[in-house]
Write a protein that binds this DNA or RNA. Structure first.
Lengths: 206, 206
DNA sequence: TCCACTACCTACTAGTAGGTAGGCAAAATC
DNA sequence: GATTTTGCCTACCTACTAGTAGGTAGTGGA
């Protein structure tokens, strides 16, 4: 048991989590009803509530999965045995690939940041702070060693965070500005190269 | 008539628009009820609906005011008779000041970009596209004249848009990362200086 | 004095939200 | 083979939503 009656090998619970992610990312917490999610899976609302005790709990589980998926995927790039600009570019690229593969994660994360985390029991920035601080420390070391130009590492990271996330979170809006499908791989790669070149100009002296 | 019975010189209609902006920015379109807004003004929902025909119309009017306010305030910086880096820095500073004064506008704008403009009759990116294109053209001219380093102007603007807006839209989240009140004037100025220095490094050759 | 209008109210509608109770059939366990 | 568990269902609940109907007090002009 605990195996799905429908579609591929996924359990109903996993199907619900997938559909919930899509809905929450697209229309937000308040804009999504449990009926929407249940209908997307092909069951009725009470059946959904058999798998998750409440809407809030379901939302929390979606977020838990998001964080563990992201951390797992970023770990490789962060722990790679490279230094200087090479490592910075590697992590930047990994971030872009990660976001390109999981645009729904980016949107739901943005929404949660906008709402100030009211729907989540956990403090989002608290969870990400260790990652943020270790990145800042890395930048500071590189600057002290003269490999990067001097900038405030925290503000630099906030700038980068905003620049990269926005491309994915505000995709519909950016589509309109660029008159392109911003989430096509071709265009994601193009933007990644531009952002990389921009950071290289700002950080490297030669 | 058409004058307010309450508070200062503002009409009830203006009080409703103010309260609606605050609520929509903080909790989003779906997360805000007309009862919330009416209660904030000190009237009942039917009285609110006497001033605005529907929730959607009220939201639209809030946005119309946002766009005209922003356009008006940015016009001075854009039309200033400066060139090269000086003008870029002037517009950047004007943008920061503008956003610092109107953080609720930034948040509601972000939400609308996230939602893809479904609550608005108008196409947001269409409205802002002329501004976007003229900025891109300016950058291209400066690059062609050798005053700025070569970057793709459109991608550069998207990067800047994301970097700056995020600081204001995601304020609660960024507060947690920086362990500071990001919207204090002191910290806004600090971030503005950092972003400016960062762009200067990326755009200027010497 | 009468009329029209504004700004507000209470009381209602229809519809939807999240969540619960209880039943039923198939599968797993004893 | 009997019993328990799982997964889903229909039918229901309460609370809240946007919006409407109809009434009232006050205002200003003819």
């Amino acid at each position: 048991m605990s195996e799905s009656p429908s579609s591929d090998g996924k359990s109903t619970r996993e199907l619900i989590l997938d559909e919930a992610l899509t809905c929450f990312a697209e229309r937000g917490y308040e804009g999504t009803s449990l009926n929407d999610i249940a209908a997307g899976v092909g069951i009725k609302r009470p059946s959904l509530l058999h798998h998750f005790p409440s809407k809030e709990a379901l939302y929390g589980d979606v977020f838990e999965k998001l964080l563990s998926d992201w951390m797992e995927r970023l770990a490789d790039a962060i722990n790679s045995h490279t230094t200087g600009w090479e490592k910075f570019e590697l992590v930047l690229r990994a971030g872009f690939d990660l976001f390109a593969d999981t645009p729904d994660y980016v949107r739901i994360m943005r929404r949660e940041a906008l709402d100030g985390g009211i729907h989540l029991g956990i403090d989002l920035s608290g969870v990400l702070k260790p990652l943020f601080e270790s990145a800042a420390q890395y930048l500071q070391e590189q600057m002290d060693a003269g490999r990067f130009r001097q900038h405030d590492p925290h503000h630099l990271l906030i700038t980068g965070y905003g620049a990269i996330l926005t491309y994915f979170s505000d995709a519909p809006f950016i589509d309109g500005l660029l008159e392109e499908q911003s989430l096509l791989h071709k265009n994601i790669n193009s933007h990644c190269e531009n952002v990389t070149a921009f950071f290289r100009s700002a950080l490297l002296t030669e």
